[in-house]
């Protein structure tokens, strides 16, 4: 896994700075830079925690240095299946600080249980969850440590 992720250490500081700037901008629009590829003319993938992706794309296109921004199109045949049409998902930030109910960020510490509940209007409530694993902060990309996957992934 690590071999795919250490290219930052061999790329220029300019590239790392540019990636850091884009990561900041995505953070500012309530999103997250998920990955980048090919430091020789790079591209990346971002996610947004909320909001409309087309509006975000219009914003991203105005950023300095951005050549293009587009929807993340699914090309495989099942992409339009009934199964996909029924899938729901949401991302949220996970923080390590004190719990602040209602801030749209989930705060937890290693070993904490995180529980998700859904109460349908009728029928049995659903619940799921996980135990927060130990988090090893890898440091900022500007410091040249691009993404080692922590051991609990």
């Amino acid at each position: 896994m690590k071999d795919r992720l250490t290219y930052a250490s061999s790329s220029s500081s300019r590239w790392r700075k540019d990636v850091g700037e884009v990561a900041d901008r995505i953070d500012d629009i309530d999103g997250e830079l998920r990955y980048v590829a090919d430091p020789d003319g790079w591209f990346g993938n971002g996610l947004i925690y909320d909001g409309d992706v087309d509006r975000v794309i219009r914003i991203v296109r105005t950023w300095p240095g951005v050549r293009s921004a587009n929807r993340d199109i699914l090309f495989y045949p099942l992409a339009r299946s009934e199964l996909h049409a029924r899938q729901l998902a949401v991302y949220a930030r996970l923080g390590l600080g004190e719990a602040v109910p209602g801030d749209r960020q989930i705060q937890a510490r290693a070993g904490d249980s995180v529980t998700i509940r859904y109460q349908p209007p009728s029928g049995v409530p659903l619940a799921s969850g996980f135990v927060m694993c130990e988090v090893l902060t890898t440091g900022d990309i500007l410091e040249g440590e691009l993404g080692e996957i922590p051991p609990c992934a």
Partner: peptide
């Protein structure tokens, strides 16, 4: 319904994804 902790490689950030 499923939830899990997901790593974001930049800045050591973590997230949660919930799916159903």
């Amino acid at each position: 319904l499923e939830a899990r902790q997901v790593p974001f490689r930049f800045r050591g950030n973590w997230g949660v994804i919930v799916r159903a």
